[in-house]
């Protein structure tokens, strides 16, 4: 693996909501390597978006980092309180592609102006230069006739085209890290692949480090080098793409993979995870997944599991990996893919 570009250590994030405290990120640690592409997967509300927004200081004002560090380029981003300290990082160092291209663009400004705005903020360049650069970025993201299109308003673009514009804005200032927050969820299936390959191509060309946030495991398999599985504000398992897909260890990852319709057995009812994710307003004891976990141990209700290393690149937070734990067989369909994985490594 390459150098660590961004390192998160034991991050805790809390939101104050009308006098109640929501503990959204519960002690997450993560190293992001230069040039890699990491996918963070998890169901809605697991804290994937909130977690990555911490890197850019984009969470709402009622959210505050309670403890922990985010080290980037020798600085601790968790300590930044002033907006002006964030400004050069946002867009300049770390950029973001949002989920819904239909609403992410200002409807009253031409798309050219919106891209130029980003360029002018981060690069010492005059209007003329910014214009030229804007046109080249538009061409980079695959928009034909950039001169004409730059003068148009967002409502004159289709969804896929708008997402290209959003990506153009994100990469216009040559950031080091690109966070793609469900970049394809709002798009037609036919467009999804185009956008993903565009991001992939840009990543290779510009040497970006990519973080994908998604709940779509199909997307993950396509683009990710590594996968982090989030549940209830915590990364429960992290490892290389193959490790997670073919040798998952955490019962939540099992459940998540089992929920893929592709893995269902014909004639059997589709798998679904029982119960609901925990309410993060209340303090969680033990393993957050325990109440829904058919493989839970008694200790899961008492003590939060630490990370157990499976391989140098693969670790999971579950007591099942403790030497004292009884040997438990994963569900049948997980065993099936494991076998498949070992058959063709």
């Amino acid at each position: 693996m390459g150098d660590v570009i961004l390192s998160v250590k034991d991050l805790n994030l809390k939101f104050d909501l009308r006098g109640r405290v929501l503990h959204a990120i519960r002690g997450v640690s993560l190293d992001l390597y230069k040039g890699e592409s990491l996918a963070i997967v998890g169901e809605s509300g697991s804290g994937k978006s909130v977690f990555t927004k911490c890197f850019m200081g984009l969470n709402d004002l009622n959210g505050h980092i309670d403890s922990g560090e985010i080290l980037y380029d020798g600085k601790d981003l968790a300590k930044i309180t002033q907006e002006k300290d964030w400004l050069p990082i946002r867009g300049g160092e770390i950029a973001m592609v949002m989920q819904d291209p239909m609403t992410s663009l200002n409807p009253l400004k031409t798309i050219g102006a919106q891209i130029e705005e980003a360029i002018l903020l981060h690069q010492k360049i005059d209007r003329h230069g910014a214009h030229a650069q804007m046109l080249s970025v538009l061409k980079d993201v695959g928009i034909d006739e950039p001169e004409r299109r730059a003068r148009q308003y967002p409502h004159e673009f289709s969804g896929g085209m708008r997402q290209r514009v959003v990506i153009a804005i994100a990469v216009a200032c040559r950031p080091k890290i690109l966070i793609c927050d469900e970049p394809t969820t709002a798009l037609d299936v036919t467009i999804q692949a185009q956008i993903l390959s565009l991001i992939k191509e840009l990543r290779d060309r510009l040497g970006l480090t990519c973080v994908y946030i998604t709940h779509d495991l199909g997307v993950v398999a396509n683009v990710a080098d590594r996968i982090a599985v989030m549940y209830a504000g915590d990364i429960v398992e992290i490892g290389l793409c193959e490790e997670i897909f073919y040798d998952p260890r955490h019962p939540y990852t099992w459940a998540l993979l089992s929920s893929l319709p592709q893995l269902g057995v014909r004639g059997q009812p589709l798998f679904s995870i029982k119960g609901t994710p925990p309410n993060l307003y209340t303090e969680i004891r033990g393993d957050a997944f325990a109440p829904r976990n058919p493989y839970a141990l008694e200790i899961d209700f008492v003590e939060r599991p630490p990370y157990f290393d499976v391989s140098p690149t693969h670790k999971a937070r579950t007591w099942l990996l403790d030497p004292r734990a009884p040997k438990i067989d994963p569900p049948v369909n997980i065993r099936a893919i494991r076998a498949k994985g070992s058959a063709n490594p």
């Binding site: 984009l58 907006e83 946002r90 950029a95 973001m96 663009l105 200002n106 705005e117 903020l121 981060h122």
Partner: peptide, 15 residues
């Protein structure tokens, strides 16, 4: 509260 404002923030535009 609209997304384009969030995008503008992510671009590094000051509040």
């Amino acid at each position: 509260n609209k997304d384009y404002v969030k995008l503008a923030r992510a671009k590094g535009v000051s509040t």
